[in-house]
Simulated assay, not measured.
Amino acid sequence: MSLSVAVLLGSVRQDRVGLRVARFLLRALEERGHRPTLVDPMASRLPLLDRMYKEHPPGEAPAVLEELATLYRGADAFLMVSAEYNHGIPPALKNLLDHFLEEYFWRPSAIACYSAGSYGGVRAAMQLRMTLAELGMPSIPSLLPFPRAAASLDEEGRPLDPAHPPRADRFLDELEWYAEALRDRRSRGVPY
């Protein structure tokens, strides 16, 4: 069953390795027959949060917020691609997330994290998991860490480490299960 998945990239650094992780996951989702869409903060150029999407009068939100709101309302799941900045969530990802709220409700999220070191960004993922739950899109139990990401994926996101594809398969199997289950429940109504 094809899913619409918004893949949120969390870095705006010039030489961001996260783009490699995102490309790897976009390709893996497409190979499974899903419809992933990359949400890149470098492309959207959202300002620092001053007013959430819902705080704009109807029809008066900036075009980029309208586009993202439409994408998010049609998404079956959200996949975060997060670096770890000083053991925390990258500011670009937090800002990207905070512009919306109701558009996330009743949809699962998943966290792929990465770092230059051996922990693969899991310290940031733990903080991100709390934020995602508060936004109404709790994360699936599994994480997909990419330690030493620059050495394990090439520029186009092709794996240089043979362990990545089978780990990603298990991770995406889990995301699919949650996304399909919640899509079915949303079709029958939500608690409020």
Rank of each mutant, 00 (worst) to 15 (best):
M1E: 10
S2W: 06
A6I: 05
L9M: 13
S11T: 15
V12W: 02
D15P: 00
R16W: 04
R16I: 03
G18P: 00
G18L: 05
L19D: 05
R20Q: 13
V21R: 03
V21S: 06
V21K: 01
F24I: 00
L26M: 14
R27N: 12
A28T: 09
T37K: 08
L38S: 07
L38W: 02
V39I: 15
P41L: 10
M42S: 13
A43Y: 05
A43Q: 12
S44W: 15
S44K: 08
L46D: 05
P47Y: 10
L48Q: 14
D50P: 01
R51S: 11
R51H: 15
Y53F: 15
P58S: 11
G59I: 11
A63S: 14
E66Y: 02
L68V: 03
A69G: 12
T70A: 14
T70L: 10
Y72R: 02
G74P: 00
A77I: 02
M80Y: 03
V81L: 09
Y85A: 01
H87P: 00
I89H: 00
P90A: 10
L93Q: 02
K94H: 12
K94T: 09
L97W: 04
D98L: 14
F100P: 00
L101H: 12
L101T: 06
E102M: 12
E103W: 04
Y104D: 06
W106I: 04
S109L: 07
S109E: 05
A110S: 06
C113Q: 04
C113E: 05
A116K: 05
A116Q: 12
Y119R: 11
G120V: 05
V122K: 01
R123H: 14
A124L: 09
A124T: 06
A125V: 08
T131Q: 10
L132Q: 04
A133R: 15
L135C: 12
G136Y: 09
P138C: 11
S139L: 06
I140P: 01
I140A: 02
I140E: 03
I140Q: 00
P141L: 05
L143F: 10
L143V: 02
L144C: 07
P145E: 03
F146C: 01
F146K: 01
R148Y: 13
R148T: 09
R148M: 13
A150Q: 12
S152M: 09
L153V: 05
D154I: 09
E155K: 10
R158H: 11
R158L: 10
P159A: 14
P165T: 05
P165W: 07
A168L: 09
D169P: 01
R170K: 15
F171R: 02
L172T: 00
L175H: 02
L175G: 01
W177E: 11
Y178L: 07
A179C: 13
E180N: 11
D184N: 11
D184E: 15
R185P: 01
R186H: 10
G189A: 13
V190I: 15
V190R: 14
P191I: 13
Y192I: 07
